[in-house]
C-alpha cells in the first residue's frame, strides 16, 4: 500500500492552505504535527477526496484517487476533526448505518459494530442515544466508525481531542494493534500521542511540510536548543515573557524552567535531551500564541 501526493496545493482566495506538498506514505503510522492553520485538516480532507486540490494529484498504488472513486473510498477510514453524528441514533445503530454506507453486509456490520464498540469501551452504552454521550464517548464512537471497514488507509484528524489519559492510552494501543500493513495518518496537538505510536512524524507549517522522519530523528532537530535552569521564583515570570518556556516547576523559592532557545538563557542553564514536544514548541509557539 502506497499513497503518493504530487505537488498537492490548496488555495482559498488569498490564503494558501497547502503549498505544493510532495509526500510518499507507505504502511505505518504517521503523526502530523502543526499549529492551528498549518494546513493539516485541509491536507487530510484532500487525501480523503472530500476537498478538491487547486492543483496536484494523489495516487494510491499508482492510481489517481479521483479516478478510483469507490475503490479508493473502500480502503479509507476517516475521523474528521468535528465528528458529526445523529443525536437520535443509538451508538449501535449509528455504526450499523455507517457500516451500510461502507458496504458491509448486515451480518458483517453487526459483528464489526459490536467488536468495535467493545474495543472503544462503549459496549455497555450501545443502546444509548448518542445525544446522551459525553465528548470523550462521542470521540470514541468516531474512532470506531472510522475503523468499521478495516481500512487500509486510516485518516484521523485530532482523534484524541476530548479523551482522558486512560482513554488516550486505550486509543494508542488500538491504533498500534491496527496499523500493521496499513497507512495511519493522524494529527494531534497532544504531541505525546504521536511520539509513542508514530513511525514517522510529519511537521507542517504554513501549508508546507518542513520536516519528516522518525520521532527520534525529528526530535534531534531540537538538539542544543533545550535548556534546564533553576531561577528564583520571583524572576520566573521574566523568563516566561522572554523565552519559550516548555515547562515550569516550583520548588519552594526556586523554579525549575525548561527553556527552548537558540542561546543559553542564563548562567547555570544545562543543555538537556530534547523531546518531540520541545521541537513542537520550538516551531509553533508563536503560531499557538497568535491563535
Amino acid at each position: 500500500m502506497e499513497l503518493r501526493l504530487d505537488r498537492l496545493t490548496k488555495q482559498y482566495k488569498q490564503k494558501l492552505a497547502v503549498d505544493r506538498i510532495d509526500l510518499e506514505l507507505k504502511c505505518g503510522v504517521y503523526g502530523l504535527l502543526g499549529a492551528n492553520g498549518a494546513g493539516k485538516t485541509t491536507l487530510m480532507r484532500m487525501i480523503c477526496d472530500i476537498q478538491e486540490p487547486t492543483s496536484g494529484e494523489i495516487f494510491c498504488n499508482g492510481q489517481n484517487i479521483r479516478e478510483m472513486g469507490e475503490e479508493y473510498r473502500d480502503r479509507l477510514g476517516y475521523l474528521p476533526q468535528n465528528f458529526g453524528y445523529y443525536p437520535e441514533f443509538t451508538a449501535y445503530k449509528f455504526l450499523l448505518y455507517i457500516a451500510s454506507l461502507k458496504g458491509l453486509s448486515k451480518q458483517q456490520a453487526s459483528v464489526r459494530a459490536l467488536y468495535l464498540l467493545d474495543m472503544v469501551g462503549l459496549a455497555d452504552q450501545k443502546k444509548q442515544k448518542i445525544k446522551t454521550f459525553s465528548g470523550g464517548m462521542k470521540q470514541r464512537l468516531g474512532i470506531a466508525q472510522a475503523m468499521l471497514n478495516e481500512p487500509e488507509i486510516l485518516v484521523l484528524d485530532e482523534p484524541t481531542a476530548g479523551l482522558d489519559p486512560k482513554e488516550r492510552v486505550r486509543f494508542r494501543n488500538l491504533i498500534s494493534s491496527f496499523s500493521k500493513d496499513k497507512i495511519v495518518l493522524l494529527s494531534t496537538h497532544i504531541v505525546s500521542d504521536v511520539e509513542y505510536i508514530a513511525d514517522e512524524i510529519l511537521v507542517m507549517k504554513d501549508g508546507r511540510l518542513i520536516h519528516r522522519g522518525a520521532p527520534e530523528v525529528v526530535t534531534q532537530e531540537a538538539k542544543g536548543l533545550v535548556w534546564e535552569c533553576k531561577v528564583d521564583t520571583k524572576d520566573a515570570e521574566r523568563y516566561v515573557e522572554r523565552y519559550n518556556v516548555g515547562n515550569l516547576k516550583n520548588t519552594g523559592d526556586q523554579t525549575v524552567l525548561r527553556i527552548i532557545s537558540d542561546v543559553c538563557p542564563c548562567e547555570g542553564a544545562v543543555e538537556t535531551e530534547p523531546t518531540l514536544e520541545d521541537l513542537y514548541l520550538y516551531y509553533f509557539s508563536e503560531e499557538e500564541d497568535r491563535s
Partner: peptide, 21 residues
C-alpha cells in the same frame, strides 16, 4: 443537515456515500 451536522465528511468518504447514499 448533513453539511450542518458535519456528517457529510463521514458519508462522502464511505464507499457508497457519493452514489448509493
Amino acid at each position: 443537515e448533513e453539511y450542518t451536522r458535519g456528517t457529510d465528511a463521514l458519508i462522502l468518504t464511505s464507499r457508497h456515500g457519493k452514489r448509493k447514499c
